[in-house]
Write a protein that binds this DNA or RNA. Sequence first.
DNA 1: ATCAACTAGTTGTCTATACCACTTGGACTA
DNA 2: TAGTCCAAGTGGTATAGACAACTAGTTGAT
Lengths: 240, 240
Amino acid sequence: MINKHSPLPIYYQLEQGIKEMIEKQQLKPGEMIPSERELAETYDISRMTVRQAINNLVNDGYLVRKRGKGTFVAAKKIEQPLKGLTSFSEDMRARGMDPGTNVLDFHIIPADQSLAQQLDIREGSDIYEIRRIRLADQLPMALETSYLPCALVPGLTRGIVSGSVYEFIENKLGLTIRSAVQVLEASVARKVEANLLQVKEGAPVLSIQRNSYLENGRPLEVVRSIYRGDRYKFTIEMER
Amino acid sequence: MINKHSPLPIYYQLEQGIKEMIEKQQLKPGEMIPSERELAETYDISRMTVRQAINNLVNDGYLVRKRGKGTFVAAKKIEQPLKGLTSFSEDMRARGMDPGTNVLDFHIIPADQSLAQQLDIREGSDIYEIRRIRLADQLPMALETSYLPCALVPGLTRGIVSGSVYEFIENKLGLTIRSAVQVLEASVARKVEANLLQVKEGAPVLSIQRNSYLENGRPLEVVRSIYRGDRYKFTIEMER
DNA sequence: ATCAACTAGTTGTCTATACCACTTGGACTA
DNA sequence: TAGTCCAAGTGGTATAGACAACTAGTTGAT
C-alpha cells in the first residue's frame, strides 16, 4: 500500500488507500479504522505522517475522530455538502462520479418576456439556448437547459458547450460568478423527460432553476435542470 | 498574542489571532502574512505548531498557501447564507401564509443505530420522537418527524411541541443553533403520507432531512420532513 | 454491591530537526 | 546583452519522541 520511494508523498498514498477502502465498502460506515500508532507501525512511517493523511480525510468528511476512542468511517459520503457555487462536473466529481455531457441542442433564440426579465436584457435580444443531458458514470443524471445572453458570452460554440461552459467563462472571458439563487421543487417526470432520463413516466424528479450573477450584479445565466430523484440528493450547509 | 500556559492550545490561539487580524482588516486580502519560520521564532514555538494554525485557516478559506512564495490572505471569504436557519413557522409567515401544527405523536424512544450516530449519543439512549403535521393556511403543507436527545432538552412536553420548539430551546434552555445541514430529495407520496397530506398516492413530494448543531458542535436535532411538491418550493441564495 | 483507583489504548498537542520542491532575484558568465 | 547559475527564502514532507486528555474496562478496597 505504501511505497516509500514513490514520488507521491507517503501521506497521500495512505490517504488514497484509505479513501479507496471506504469507497469500495471494505471499510464500512461507523467502523473503526486502525489506530494512528498501529498504522504508523504497520507501514513503518511516522505517526505524524499518518495524522496528515487522516486529517485530510476528516476534512473531506470521510472519517470522524473521537478522542480516546478511535477514528471511524463517517456515516455516508454520498451526499457531499455543496458548499459553494460548483458546476455540474465539479459536483459529480465531488460525489465520486464521472461526469459526462450530451448536447441535445445548441442555438440562438430571441429572449421571451420571462427570460429577458431574468437576464435583464431587452425582450427579443439574442440568447443562447443550450439543452444538454448530463451524465454521471455514463448514466443520465439530469436534463439541463441553459440560457445566456449572446452579448455577454461571445464566441460560445457547440464544442465548448460539450465541455465546461464555466471554465470557458471564467478562464477565457475572465468573468466570475459572484452569486446565485436556486429554487428547488419536487415534481414527476413527463413522458419526454422520462425517456431522456431513462426513468418511468411519473418517476420523481428534482427541478432546479439556478440564476447566476456576475461581480457587478449583472445576470449571466438562467439554468433549468431536471434531476433524477433516484440518483440525486441536494445538500446544503448553513451556518451563522 | 500567545500564552504558553493557557489551557487553550497554542495553535488555536495563533489561529484565532490571525483570523481576528483578517476580520479587522489589519491583514488585507492578498497581503502576505509572516512566513512560518518567522512566526515560529517570533512566538518561540515550533514551526509545526504554526503550520497547524495556518492549515486550519487555509481549510476555512481565510488563507492561501503558495509554495516558494508565502502565505496570503484569501481574496474572498465565502459568506455564509444565514438565510434558511428559520423554523417552519417563520418560513410560512415569510411566504405570507398562516402556520399551524397538529401533533400526531409525542413520546420517548431509544435511539437506533443511525440516529445515535447522527446525534452523537449512545445507541439506546432516550430521545424524543415528535411527529407533526404542519399546516399553512389550514391546509397540510408537510409531515415532520423530529428527534432530539432527552438529555439535551429536559422538560419538553406535548404542549410545547404544539407550539414552537425552537423558541423553547433558545429562550428557556438558552441553547443556540449554530449550523445545520439539509439534504433535499424528490420523491413520491406513499399511501400513509398521501392521506395525511391530502394528496394522491404517487404525488410528488420534497423530502428534507435537517441536522442541526449547537455552538459547541454537538448535534441537537434530526428532522425528517415531507413537503407537498405542489405547495412548496425551496429557495436558496448563495454568494461568495 | 458500590465506588475509587488503576491500566491500557486512543486521539490531541507540541517540540526540534532534516531535507525536498519551488520562486525570486542577483551574481556571474558567455 | 542575454542567458545561466546560485543562494536565500518560502512552503511541503517526514521523522522520533514526549506528554496531556479522554474512554472504557478491570481491579481492588470498603
